[in-house]
Amino acid sequence: MMIKTRFAAAAIMLTVAFGCNQKSDKENGAADTTAMDTLAAGNLETDAQVQDFVQSLPSPIHIAKIFQRAGLKYIPGMTNSPGNAAKYMSPYSKSVNLGVYTTDLSYCTFNNQSQEAISFFKAVKTMTDGLNLTSIFEGTNLVPRFEKNIGNTDSLVTLMALMSMESDFLLKQTARLDIAYLSFAGAWIESSYIATQILKNKRNQDILSKLLDQNHSLGKLITLLDAYKDKEEFASLIASLTDIKTSLDALNSENTIAHEEEFKKLVEKVEKLRNSVVNDN
């Protein structure tokens, strides 16, 4: 009887262990497939420098914070209208405006405009829902938490960072890098738009310095977007961003004589691209 029981116990152990391994192999396989997809996408994006991970871009929330610390104040009417959120139909326009609204959300939050911020938070949610990224908000109950903390900038920043983390993990794990790059493009365009509009009216050396500092992330973004250049919308975006980069390169050069003229060109280029992005339904 005892031998039978021990045999049964051993059989159960083997079954459980084998069963677990099978499941683990399957799931590891799935994880590996996702990872390999990500890796393959990553390989597309790198040329001169071999990278083992997909290159990470800065957080749009951080960029907004950098501008705010440099003295970028809130000016009503500068942002995209949250009411436009429902108008964006294509995945492309939703992805780019996800970034636009993330910057607007950060811009309002860091400048203590929390009533406006909640509208942008909802606009961001509309964009993510439209892109089937619902788990960013659903799993974390972010909207009610955001509403509950209106007026408390520190808490709102914490919630924005949580949203950013959920989004970063989800897009990387599901290898939806096109959305990640387009969203960053939208955020980059919106933050540069707000900065150039403010600089156009009143020159501020600190804000200008931070704007010129965005040249590096722009170069990186253009390189990453290049993997998708065969798609018409991407090609047009890359061309516009490359044109903006030409102006930023010139402004970052030591030849300061032509700076004023080049700055005007930069303002026009950013304004034109930003308006095409927010009006692209």
Partner: peptide, 22 residues
């Protein structure tokens, strides 16, 4: 505050990789 993260199982880099960069 969170800026970005990256993670992959070691097997995704190839079995004999000992130096990984990002």
């Amino acid at each position: 505050i969170f800026e970005s993260a990256a993670f992959k199982p070691l097997s995704a880099f190839g079995n004999k990789k000992s130096l990984i960069e990002a």
